[in-house]
Design a protein around this nucleic acid. Structure first.
Lengths: 121, 121
DNA sequence: AATAGTGTAATATATTTATAATACAATGAA
DNA sequence: TTCATTGTATTATAAATATATTACACTATT
């Protein structure tokens, strides 16, 4: 499971953890009922405080993406049928956001297309 | 000058102000020596505290994007020759970020291309 | 000169974010 | 049962973020 924390990011650390795990779930890298790393393990891995990880897990749980049990651990909770729809929606949302930013910068859809073509070479 | 604040965004308000003004400068909507809105005016417009706007302006000044004078106001400070290069770099940076996220989600460059083609119709 | 508006600065308060250090009940395996 | 690990919870402290309020020197205009 790929996950890195950017201390210089304007995004709060626990938000970065939330986003990274969400991405991993939507990508299918983490499936329904898969175990998440323990709070203490992930904190040690990322070199951040366990409380910060717990806060992220708590938020993910509030959104229905996982569930934690005291003696056991935390497990991914996603209706398997929904995963791919969420994945597609996430892609389109990110793409829309990018296009809006490009438009704000004064770039046309053609400009973006050309950038894409250049990238493919 | 288009500028809105999303209170629900995980990004701090003053960071949102910084990003929005940077975008406006790089797009060419704000050119070298153009006046920025006064701190109090922008605060009233965005319904946030003047101190928060001042913090954003201070950060922009530290990055060399503007300059403030006491009795006068704040003005954009960008070497005119650099603007378009920065604009292009911003576009490519955003695109790269989007592609990375798409890759993490398990989408190929072909998938993104198809999404683009679908968008153009 | 007077005045309104400017950036800048300082103080105070509250909330959010992050860390540190414990504690405890629940779980699962030895 | 014993024991290590788990999520959860609490308390404390610090830093960052945001607001509120006030003050001051500077600028441009009247």
């Amino acid at each position: 499971m790929k996950l890195t924390i950017d201390a210089k990011s304007p995004l709060p650390v626990y938000q970065q953890v939330i986003q990274a795990i969400k991405l991993e779930i939507l990508s299918g890298g983490l499936r329904d009922n898969d175990p998440l790393p323990s709070i203490r393990d992930l904190a040690k891995l990322l070199r951040i405080n366990p409380n910060t990880v717990a806060k992220a897990y708590y938020a993910l749980e509030a959104e229905g993406f996982c569930e934690g049990r005291s003696g056991s651990g935390s497990r991914v909770k996603v209706p398997p049928g929904r995963q791919d729809g969420l994945r597609q929606a996430m892609l389109e949302g990110e793409f829309k956001g990018f296009l809006e930013k490009a438009a704000t910068l004064g770039f046309s859809l053609d400009d973006v297309t050309h950038l894409m073509e250049r990238t493919r070479k």
